[in-house]
Every structure is written in C-alpha cells, then in structure tokens.
C-alpha cells in the first residue's frame, strides 16, 4: 500500500517487475488534495466520528448504570433484550432503518450516521452497554452507599463517582467506537448521495470508476485514512493501561 502510493501511475501499470518506486514521488498526494474534495471527506468523517463517540459515551454509560446499579421492575427482561440485540446483525434491520430515516427526511445528511450512536443503537451499541455494565458490576457497592449517605442523588453518584472509576471501560469504548464509525462504509453508502457529504470510506471509492482504477491515488487516500486510526489506537492503548493501574491501586 505504501509503496504503491509513492509510485507514479506509469510505473504501476508498466514496470510490473519493480517493487520499489523509482523515483519516489508525492505527486499522488498533491493530486488527491487538488483534484478531489478530500478535505471535505476528512471534515465529514471527523464530524461524524467525534459526535458519534460523544453520543455513544453518554448513552452507553447511562444505560450501563441503569442495568448494573439501579433496581427496577423488569430490568433483567430488558437486559435480555439488549443481549439478543447484540446477536442480531445490523444489516438485517438495514431496510426498516432506512425507511425510518426517510420518513424523518434525514437522507443525504450526516444525521443517519450519528443518531444511532446517540441512542446506543449503532452496530456495536449493545456490546458497549454490556461492557460498561460488567465493569460497573465489578465496582464495589460500598462506594455508592458511602456517597448516598453523604447526600448524593442518583445522578451525582453516576457523574461524580462512577464515571471517574469507569475510565478503563470508557477508554475501550472510545477506541472501539472510533474504529466503528471511522470505517463505517455501508450506512455512508446508503444514506449519502451528494459528493459534498461523503465521508472518507466512500471518498476512497471516488477514484474507482467503471473504466479506470487509479490505484496510486486509492493507496494514497487509504494511507491518509489509516493514519488517524493508528494514532487513536496507540494513544488509547496507553490510556487503557493507565486506567487499569489507577483502579487497581485504589483497590
């Protein structure tokens, strides 16, 4: 991928026996930014991913708190529904979802990519709720009770006590949901028709036409789209390990 991104188009098609580019060129990257709306693809991807992550965090931590801590009638039954939802592939409910968004006039906007995350209904939403719930169950009840005696309401327990203790779980949810939304191809393909609204994954497809496939530019665009994912993974990993240490030392 990297080697092809730095070759010229002539080299990729004519000098098939050479592995390394000769000479190395950054012409492909220049072309990507000059001839295609790459910046707007990146901008849209960043908007979708960041707002989705915020939505995922809000909805899944609240749901996890409700399932893991609070006692209410029918809690276990509703949790079973969440578990079953985890086992339904999202593509099976793609068409009804499309119709709902059509009724709401959300087609060809970025909302269909963002709204499911805010409702914990994205592809992996149920899995996040499950993760957070398991983690909350492992936090001792005594901490909650102490907070209650000090005069904290339910929401204050959630925001002041549980959220700081949940950092490792939240870190993993952030990493997972970043990857999920950054690579989201299918729903972007379904809901977006306008070039100005494209996100990166379908933006890359822009270089692949029926007649001619511009491999050099595809590889260049792929590199651009992979870099943020790698950065997030490395940063997230450090954060995860830190979170684990923090909670372990407090005992």
């Amino acid at each position: 991928m990297i080697v092809t991104a730095f070759k010229s188009s002539y080299q990729t098609y004519n000098e098939l026996d050479k592995f390394w580019p000769d000479p190395w060129t950054i012409q492909n990257f220049k072309d990507i930014f000059l001839t295609t709306p790459m910046l707007s693809f990146i901008k849209n991807s960043v908007i979708v991913t960041s707002t989705s992550i915020i939505g995922t965090l809000l909805s899944t931590t609240l749901a996890g708190y409700a399932f893991g801590r609070l006692k209410w009638k029918g809690r276990d039954a509703v949790f079973m529904v969440v578990l079953i939802a985890m086992m339904i592939p999202s593509q099976a409910i793609m068409i009804p979802q499309y119709m709902v968004f059509q009724k709401a006039h959300f087609i060809n906007t970025l909302f269909p990519l963002i709204v499911p995350s805010w409702l914990a209904a994205s592809t992996k939403g149920a899995f996040y709720i499950f993760t957070i719930r398991q983690f909350i169950m492992s936090i001792p009840h005594d901490i909650d009770e102490a907070a209650k005696i000090e005069g904290c309401g339910y929401f204050k327990i959630y925001s002041k006590i549980l959220i700081p203790l949940l950092t490792p779980a939240i870190g993993s949810v952030i990493v997972f949901s970043f990857i999920e939304n950054w690579n989201n191809f299918l729903s972007a393909l379904i809901y977006l028709n306008d070039e100005a609204k494209f996100t990166l994954p379908i933006g890359i497809q822009y270089f692949q036409t029926q007649i001619f496939v511009d491999w050099n530019k595809i590889m260049g665009a792929s590199i651009i789209s992979v870099i943020p994912a790698i950065i997030v993974l490395f940063v997230g990993q450090k954060y995860l390990i830190k979170g684990v240490n923090l909670s372990a030392s407090k005992g």
Partner: peptide, 16 residues
Amino acid sequence: MGYASAVATIFLIIVL
C-alpha cells in the same frame, strides 16, 4: 424493498 426485506428476514433466521 419488499423482496430485499424478505431476504433480510431469511438472513436473520439463518443467523438466529
């Protein structure tokens, strides 16, 4: 859409 929904239902049944 109707045909595709039917296929999606079969898909769901297979997975379940």
